[in-house]
């Protein structure tokens, strides 16, 4: 078997144009899921909001249990129909089918990442003893300040290695957006593969691009970990 190197190079360059879309979906999902995932973790771990907790538990099971490709198809096929029914019922003059596919992709991935990260944050919250929050509150901080200034920074620090894996998982998951006709890295390569009947080459190129992205992400996280641990150890020496 010989590979069509010319095609590979062309596809590589072409696929790079999908990186902004991949990173956009990833970045928005992470930024939204950071606060939302924390709230979800706190509600699920707490005892106060029983109804919200029950709903979120079901939601988490759904996100964990239903294959991503099925979730994507539900979002892509079913959700616009539901929305347009609602719009019609309310006589809203909105053309639901004019909404770009990427909006649905982003919505789905925000929801998915929120649930996904909430599991990480739940584990992370157990690494910070509750007494620190009590101390913060008894020292005059509000509970919100106690979380944002004391608890959450420690959860994020302790969970950096897991968050790195989570981020890479998310990036790889976004490759399924091709099924929603969102033109990201995988979709571009897939289209090129179909047009030229060079499937092996196209997928090799796609793999290479994801490896580069994930490698970069890993190094960004390693850099952050080093900085954090340097901060905590700086004064131990001198």
């Amino acid at each position: 078997m010989t590979l069509n190197y010319e095609f590979m190079l062309e596809t590589f360059v072409e696929s790079l144009k999908g990186i902004p879309v991949t990173l956009l979906i990833t970045a928005i999902s992470l930024l939204a899921a950071l606060p939302l995932g924390f709230i979800m973790a706190l509600v699920r771990d707490g005892n106060k909001h029983k109804i919200a907790k029950a709903i979120l538990d079901v939601y988490a099971s759904f996100v964990r249990g239903v294959p991503m490709i099925v979730q994507i198809m539900l979002m892509y096929v079913l959700f616009p129909d539901i929305l347009s029914l609602i719009a019609k019922a309310l006589h809203l003059p909105i053309d639901i089918y004019g909404v770009p596919n990427i909006a649905y992709a982003i919505l789905l991935f925000v929801l998915w990442t929120t649930s996904f990260l909430s599991e990480t944050f739940r584990a992370g919250l157990h690494t910070v003893n509750k007494g620190q929050l009590e101390a913060a509150v008894s020292n005059g901080m509000t509970t919100f300040q106690g979380y944002t200034r004391i608890v959450i920074p420690q959860v994020l620090t302790n969970m950096l290695p897991v968050l790195c894996t989570n981020t890479n998982t998310l990036i790889k998951m976004t490759s399924l957006c091709f099924a929603m006709s969102v033109i990201e890295i995988t979709a571009i390569a897939k289209i090129a593969a179909g047009n030229n009947l060079c499937y092996v080459e196209a997928y090799l190129v796609t793999a290479l691009i994801y490896i580069i992205i994930c490698f970069t992400v890993e190094n960004i996280f390693k850099f952050m970990e080093r900085n954090v641990s340097k901060k905590y150890k700086r004064l131990a020496a001198g």
Partner: peptide, 10 residues
């Protein structure tokens, strides 16, 4: 507190 409960990130 019995177990100090200092803020570990401060």
């Amino acid at each position: 507190f019995q177990n100090y409960n200092l803020y570990n990130n401060k």
